[in-house]
Amino acid sequence: MEVVDPQQLGMFTEGELMSVGMDTFIHRIDSTEVIYQPRRKRAKLIGKYLMGDLLGEGSYGKVKEVLDSETLCRRAVKILKKKKLRRIPNGEANVKKEIQLLRRLRHKNVIQLVDVLYNEEKQKMYMVMEYCVCGMQEMLDSVPEKRFPVCQAHGYFCQLIDGLEYLHSQGIVHKDIKPGNLLLTTGGTLKISDLGVAEALHPFAADDTCRTSQGSPAFQPPEIANGLDTFSGFKVDIWSAGVTLYNITTGLYPFEGDNIYKLFENIGKGSYAIPGDCGPPLSDLLKGMLEYEPAKRFSIRQIRQHSWFRKKHPPAEAPVPIPPSPDTKDRWRSMTVVPYLEDLHGADEDEDLFDIEDDIIYTQDFTVPGQVPEEEASHNGQRRGLPKAVCMNGTEAAQLSTKSRAEGRAPNPARKACSASSKIRRLSACKQQ
């Protein structure tokens, strides 16, 4: 084909351009004929944790799935940006308080904090938690009735009371019990989460009196709706648990309003109706937990002794299953770290194939690490110290990083047969305790 000078094309009309061969290198194709290559998922490591896909996002930050490269346990990490926390009232204080509380709590029905990582340079905090497959609110939203069968609701409620009793025994008032803060594992274990607005009572406090509340409006008791200066913290949790039980068994809320002012007005009056299909035992329990006067409201001991709580409820309806993943529609909620794991395991070791967030990740503290002497050669063979940054567990980050890069360049065919977990650990520049 004859090559045409581009400067001469402006002298031709459209018809003349076609005659000189423009149609031979300008093609129009339908979008259905285009085959897009999927974007390669680059592996990203935060300390010893391999990052997966997004699980959810809230006002405080994002939650992603991660894999512990040492234990191969599935975890969830809450990623918090200090810049964003400053824009939220009491944001930083709530996060630090939640970390302090979770560090000393150990119960099967309370979410466990596994690790805390802090990135000084990017001003990011990573709260590594045990993995929960789904939230209770997500399960309720997945069915038209917006409720659980009585047998399933009873099982979840009993676990909620177990976890709540443990928190109260530790002198902690949750203040925000609701389905949105109750998570579930694949085995059906309920976990109380989000202790950001919780309050730890003084060890020598005479009672459970509280003065502040930041919980969700629909789950607040009349004493808070009416603006009382002080109130019983434990009875606030009992009320919120009662509203939660009402919601998961009926699909409704005892109090509603077009806006928060109308909602608080209705809560302050204390008038509500219980659907007739709840039955006398459940209705009596709800009335005891939603008692207007805090002094007359049920205690956890009274809830445990109630006939509806103690009764064994046979399954009359099919239980609400864990819904498919909202993004991938995966009904099994498979591990989202698998594509990243395959990338590390299947590809040659190259620095361009993975990302390490930083050479140094500070753990379990908000301060910069200490310094240790770096050896410097002298005339008599002895070495003197220069400062060298280290990880919180004493690992020399720069030395590990250099060693990792040197190993990656060394030709050794046997290394390709290593397991995925050992490869992740070798790529991680800074081991965590």
Rank of each mutant, 00 (worst) to 15 (best):
L54M: 07
I248P: 00
M335H: 00
C134Y: 07
F234W: 12
E407W: 01
D355C: 10
D348M: 05
D277L: 05
V390L: 08
Y166C: 04
D258R: 09
L113P: 02
Q371Y: 06
E293T: 10
E65H: 11
P321D: 13
L263S: 08
C158R: 12
C391N: 02
L164C: 08
D141W: 03
P413D: 14
K96E: 02
P319Y: 12
L263V: 04
E98W: 01
K97V: 06
R87I: 12
F148K: 00
L101V: 04
T230S: 05
E396C: 09
I99S: 04
G288R: 05
I99M: 06
E65C: 06
H345F: 11
Y292A: 07
C151V: 08
G346Y: 14
L400G: 12
T395M: 06
P275W: 06
V20T: 14
K48D: 10
Q302S: 12
A414K: 13
D327A: 09
G268T: 13
K269F: 04
F219H: 08
A389L: 13
H154M: 03
G270T: 07
P294M: 07
L190F: 02
I248E: 04
P254A: 00
Q137D: 02
A200D: 04
M127R: 01
Q214V: 05
L400S: 06
A316W: 02
A417R: 14
M139I: 06
L183T: 07
L140Q: 13
L183V: 08
G268N: 06
N109I: 01
A377S: 09
Y156S: 04
V197S: 14
Q382K: 07
P217H: 02
M127P: 04
E317H: 09
R304V: 13
M51I: 08
P373F: 09
P221V: 06
Y292V: 05
E349W: 07
G215S: 07
V66L: 07
N181F: 00
K64C: 04
N412E: 13
P324M: 04
Y261P: 07
I88C: 06
L201N: 08
K83L: 02
Y340T: 14
L263Q: 01
D365E: 05
H202A: 08
L17Y: 14
R40F: 10
K96N: 07
M127I: 03
P294R: 03
A225V: 09
E130P: 02
G56T: 01
L290H: 00
C418A: 15
P254T: 05
T336S: 06
Q399G: 13
Y36H: 11
K124R: 08
N247E: 10
I322Q: 02
S216D: 01
T395H: 13
H27A: 08
P315R: 10
K431L: 14
C158A: 11
T212E: 15
K81H: 09
I192C: 12
L45K: 13
M392P: 15
R211C: 09
G279Y: 11
L45G: 09
G268Q: 09
S59Q: 15
D348Y: 04
K235H: 09
T189W: 08
T189G: 05
Q100V: 11
R331S: 10
I224P: 05
S421V: 11
L182F: 06
A398G: 07
V4L: 05
C418M: 13
E374H: 06
S307D: 12
A377Y: 12
V372D: 13
R147T: 00
E165K: 05
G288S: 05
V320H: 14
P281Q: 13
K41V: 10
G188I: 06
C418Y: 14
Q302C: 06
I238N: 08
I361K: 03
Y131L: 11
I267N: 06
S216A: 04
D352S: 14
M22C: 08
I161N: 01
V368R: 04
L282T: 02
K146L: 07
T249E: 00
N380S: 05
P221M: 02
L117N: 12
S232Y: 05
K329P: 12
E223H: 08
C151Q: 13
Q137S: 11
M125I: 07
I29E: 11
G251L: 00
Q137P: 08
P149R: 02
P314N: 13
D355S: 12
E396V: 13
D53S: 13
P339S: 11
T230M: 05
R384G: 09
G276F: 05
K96P: 02
H202V: 09
S401H: 12
D358G: 07
E130T: 10
V66T: 07
A406R: 14
D53P: 13
Y292R: 08
K108S: 04
M22Y: 14
E121M: 04
V372M: 03
D176W: 00
E121F: 04
K287D: 09
G288A: 05
R75I: 08
N380Q: 12
M51W: 01
F354R: 13
S325H: 13
A429R: 12
G394M: 15
E374V: 04
Q159S: 03
Q305A: 10
S142N: 08
T244V: 07
L286R: 00
E396Q: 08
T395N: 11
P294V: 10
D358A: 09
R409W: 11
L101I: 06
S240R: 04
K416T: 11
I360Y: 13
Q123W: 03
S240W: 00
K329E: 10
G227W: 09
R384Y: 13
V133L: 05
L228Y: 09
R384T: 07
V338L: 11
K83Y: 07
K329Q: 07
Q37W: 01
R297K: 00
F204W: 10
V110C: 05
S421E: 14
K81R: 08
G268L: 14
S419D: 07
F148M: 10
P254V: 04
A429C: 15
P294H: 05
G385L: 04
K62Y: 10
E291M: 15
M127A: 12
Q382G: 11
V372K: 15
L72S: 03
I322A: 13
E407F: 09
E138I: 12
K175L: 07
L353I: 08
C132M: 10
M18H: 11
E407Q: 04
L113C: 08
N109H: 00
V390F: 08
L353D: 15
Q382S: 12
T244K: 02
E317L: 10
L190I: 06
K83V: 06
S325A: 06
I322V: 06
E407P: 14
D284T: 04
S421I: 13
I46T: 09
H313M: 09
V77P: 02
L282D: 09
A198G: 09
